[in-house]
Design a protein around this nucleic acid. Structure first.
Lengths: 231, 231
DNA sequence: CAGTGGTCTAGACCACGCA
DNA sequence: GCGTGGTCTAGACCACTGT
């Protein structure tokens, strides 16, 4: 019973296997689609489906007129999940709590202005809060929100609902950029996270845009031992 | 001249826009493909192409018989690049150097065995080396290699070529998992990276497999200030 | 069982980019 | 120019799953 359900998938796997075992070594030109279609006894469209997936994975490169080639230097990538903190805590059987520490309308700080690439600086909403798991500080959040895009958030009671959750539900984004780095907790941060001064913590710095308009920039200071895991 | 070249792309964007502006709010059921095809005056295949992309992005969910729905809780993801250190250093106009510090055949350490999920522990190649930019330590690498998969690496002169580069070229992988966390540099690590004890550094822990057979696990200890950036 | 999305086809035309 | 991949179509059949 070699019933083939997803021919394009099988073809993808078979070509991938041939690349892995060096039947098609790196840099090698693959047969053109129409020949592959004959070889695999299928329509060219089906070959294209398989090839598109391989190209998306960076395993092959396709060029019009040029043909299809096995990638020379496949760049390594990882897809990581950016947590919705509330869910993350509860998935670890913790009790999630959240506390607003600071909320104010402020002029755009310089490093945000630079990141947002805005010509006309305006005031932004600056929020600092702490996310807790079982009454233990879990993540400290420092966020700037572009209120020209989402003036509604000014009317939201952010003591009961975190800005993150409100934004996720009410302000979808087009584009996101993330920076991850490590810092030694300074005195202030150590106090907020109830950890020792100088402990190493991960910072996740994330900015989202919608149609090239910045929505929010947030820095998440995770507690020591926090791990970011690829999916 | 409203010549449409990539109709599926435009349709994707238009539907996405309608989701963003709440014409289709979260949870909403979208019209079925065939109706969409009539609405957009195209073939159902073209609607499917657009929908497949939206589904891959997690913006909509598709179920046979059920239909297509706007996702309720879009999980945030980021794609990060795992650097080829050699290239990374040179792209920053640094001079790349590399030095082997330790190389030995050892029994599988317990935490690797666990990560590799191997039943029959065997010996592995354990390598420690330092990557430098302009003669300054840049990344310290601690790597275990499953030599049952790649016995050839035992014959490679790893003083001139890093194990990483050899593996990239000669041992493709199927699957990779990454963990990122922060640690305080201990005395030994501080000495190797020529940094102060307790400085916060990022650790990138990465394991690759081919057809479920583990190839290598590596821990990259980056120098302070190192940033992982999404693409 | 029936409705919806998933796959496949054969063929057409287009667009890019190498010669 | 012309060869290759990219897109699109109209229609067929399949596979999953809600009712």
């Amino acid at each position: 019973m070699t019933v083939e359900k997803k021919k394009w998938f099988d073809i993808k796997e078979e070509i991938h296997a041939k690349i892995l075992n060096k039947t098609y070594p790196p840099g090698e030109k693959l047969p053109k689609d129409s020949d592959m279609a004959i070889e695999y006894n299928c329509a060219r469209t089906t070959i294209q489906r398989a090839m598109r997936e391989l190209a998306q994975l960076g395993i092959v490169e396709r060029r019009r007129k040029g043909g299809t080639f096995v990638s020379q230097n496949r760049k390594a990538q990882a897809i990581i999940d950016i947590p919705i903190i509330h869910h993350e805590v509860e998935s670890m059987n913790g009790t999630y709590k959240y506390q607003m520490l600071y909320k104010n309308i402020e002029p755009v700080p310089e490093f945000i202005e630079e990141r947002w690439n805005m010509k006309s600086p305006k005031d932004v909403l600056h929020i600092q809060c702490i996310h807790m798991s079982d009454d233990t500080p879990y993540i400290y959040e420092d966020r700037w929100i572009n209120t020209t895009v989402t003036p509604q958030i000014l009317d939201v009671n952010l003591n009961t609902q975190s800005a993150n959750e409100w934004l996720v539900k009410n302000c979808p984004y087009n584009e996101a950029r993330v920076k991850i780095y490590a810092i030694n907790a300074d005195k202030e941060l150590a106090k907020k996270l109830k950890i020792n001064v100088n402990e190493a913590i991960i910072v996740i710095n994330r900015t989202t845009w919608i149609n090239n308009i910045p929505i929010t920039t947030v820095r998440l200071f995770t507690k020591p031992g926090y791990e970011i895991i690829s999916s």
